[in-house]
Simulated assay, not measured.
Amino acid sequence: MPVVHCPTCRQALTVGDGLGGTVVTCPACQQPMTLPPMPAAPAVVAQPDFVESFAVPSRPPRREYEADPAPLRVGSTNWTLVALGGGAAALLGMVVVGVVVWVLVGRTTATPSTKDKGPVAKSAPAPQPKGKVEPLAATTPGRMDDANLARIKKATVYVRIRTAKGVSSGSGFFVEPGLIVTNHHVINHPGRLEVVTQSGTVETRTYPARVLFQDATKDLALVEAAGATTPGVLQVGDTTALRETHEVYAFGFPLGERVGQEITVTKTTVSSIRTGGDRKRREVQLNGGLEHGNSGGPVTDVTGRVVGVAVSKFDNTSVHFAIAAEEVTQFLARYER
């Protein structure tokens, strides 16, 4: 607090804040006095409880595969650099000596005259094959030929169920005239079941269908399209020759009619062969390539044989699955019995 002096007795007095300009009585001489104006007390700025540091790091963060360089002490000698410099100087000296020797030897060596040369033999022409030479055929490894591609596309169908809530859809393929293999979860909805052949082409046809046989555990179903003209059937093969990294092809109608009525063909690769266990069926694990709507469609090798039926995937991953062809063969054999 500020200190003032009484104008009468010069007694030092301590004045409280906010009393400047008021009339008070000096406690020493009992004489009235007017206090001079007092300066305002400085304002106190409240400080936050916590201030987060945004300091710029002294060096950028290093990548995990970058090793920290060993520091070089100030005033120390880098013997590695000295050794490299000495080696470079020695090598340069050897090169200079070699050039001088080569020049001197070249001058002292007699150059033979053209008169001393014997007859120069002419090289015989390379023998040419007899008969007509056929050009090599151009091949594209891993590419399915056009005939197989067209055949599988014709045999793959769009499976659709019209329900009270809308349309549920998937894919399937002919294994016999009028008989179509698909997934159980594709047709397991109440409503009117239809199959569309050669969807998205001028030959497209829609047929009513019914479920003949199904297995919820294997997630397979056999559907009959009454009166359907079968544009082709597919052979169900096996997975014995299938290996990881082998290329396969998924045929079907991903996302239904939202992306169009035409068939989609996707090339992918085999990631693993699952032999059962807790998944209760043999499956081919694929490195992506499937979407909702591919379910029930054929997965074939490059020769066009069915090696699996598209069935499921883990969303937002490339871990996708197809039911192995052996499971399909067993399923069809049970129906025929």
Rank of each mutant, 00 (worst) to 15 (best):
K153N: 11
T109G: 01
G93Y: 00
P127E: 07
L104M: 09
V157M: 03
P141N: 10
V120L: 13
V103P: 02
L91V: 10
P119R: 12
R162Q: 14
S169F: 09
F174Y: 15
G131R: 02
G131P: 03
G93I: 12
S168A: 13
I161Q: 06
G118N: 05
A121R: 14
M94N: 11
E134I: 05
V103Y: 08
L104K: 12
V103M: 13
G170H: 07
I152G: 05
F174M: 05
G172V: 03
E134W: 05
K117V: 15
I152P: 11
S123N: 09
I152K: 03
S168C: 04
S168K: 08
A164N: 14
A90I: 07
G166W: 06
P112T: 00
L92Y: 00
K165R: 04
M144P: 09
V95L: 08
T140W: 05
K122Y: 13
P127T: 08
A147W: 01
T111Y: 06
P141E: 09
V101K: 04
G131L: 04
S169E: 14
V167I: 10
T140E: 10
K165A: 13
T156S: 06
V96M: 06
K153Y: 06
V167H: 04
G93D: 00
V120Q: 15
K115D: 15
V120F: 06
A138F: 10
G98C: 08
R160K: 13
P135R: 03
G170Q: 02
M144V: 14
G166R: 01
K132N: 14
V105P: 01
V159I: 02
S169Y: 03
G93W: 03
A90G: 06
V100S: 13
K122R: 13
T163A: 10
V175E: 12
L92S: 03
G166C: 06
K132I: 15
K130S: 01
M94G: 12
P135E: 13
K115C: 00
V105S: 10
V133K: 08
T114L: 15
P119C: 03
V101M: 15
P177K: 10
A137T: 01
G142W: 01
E176Y: 09
T114A: 15
A137E: 08
L149G: 04
K153D: 14
G106W: 02
V175R: 06
W102Q: 15
S123P: 15
Y158K: 01
I152M: 02
V100C: 11
F173C: 04
V157I: 03
V157W: 03
A126V: 11
G93A: 09
D116N: 03
S123M: 09
P129Y: 08
R143K: 14
G178I: 02
G142C: 09
R151D: 00
L136Y: 07
A126M: 13
T156K: 02
V101C: 11
K117I: 14
K132M: 10
M94K: 02
V100F: 05
P127H: 05
S123D: 15
T108D: 05
P119L: 09
V120G: 11
P141C: 05
E176S: 14
V159Q: 06
